[in-house]
Amino acid sequence: MSSPRSRLSSFWIALGLITGLYLLFILSMLAATAAYTTPGHWWRALAAREIRYSIGLSLATCTATALLSLLLAVPVGYLLSRGRFRGKSMLDAALDVPIVLPPMVVGLCLLILFQTPFGRAVESVVPFTYTVAGVVLAQFVIGAAFAVRTMRGTFDHLSPRPENVAMTLGCSRGRAVWLVTLPAARRGMFAAASIAWARSLGEFGPILVFAGATRMKTEVLPTSVWLELSVGNLEAAVAVSILMVALAMVVLVAVRLAGEKV
């Protein structure tokens, strides 16, 4: 019969083994992808005019989406965290809809929305369907939902008391949030924007359906992977994939570093 100490050890060893196998699986995927190509192939693929355009468009649209997501996520996250009102749980669930919807369906919903009289009226001012603005909108639908979750969590972790004190000292609620709460939430805001940015970088389905996959127009990095795969250019697809993995890693590390200091 084993002692409690050895039972505990085998328990933790089993957990460690499961975690280790999972980590090994992830690292194997990445290592295999990295080993598939050579630095020479990689540079050649990235030097192609179309790929350089898609890198530039991805960086620009992801940054625009991250900023727009943050602009939405700060007030909505605050409302969900501090607001007390009827229907709050319904609103909370509704804001998760873009996260749980299949990505292709998000694209299809956008496409149909912009065929309605309201959508056509909007398009007469700013065209979205099959345009760069459409890429940003498709990324925003999902990126903003993640940013809202992150900001809500950030505000949940911040005590409302300093804000209340600021109000007794002469601030309106808005000014107290601006002067006291938002500076304290700055790392959460950075994390929310980064998460929206990273989600947007990998977004493919809604962009394909709503903004199309036109080279040198609405082609972002995931579109490049798909287009290169579809013509059998596996090395270019792998080169773009490695670039996306590297960008995702940078965001992951940045968010982790910011998160540890929140």
Binding site: S159, R161, P162, N164, V165, V180, P183, R186
Partner: peptide, 14 residues
């Protein structure tokens, strides 16, 4: 015209 001191001081963190 009040001064308020809550339980934990509620410092402004930044």
């Amino acid at each position: 015209g009040i001064g308020y001191v809550p339980q934990d001081g509620a410092m402004f963190p930044t």
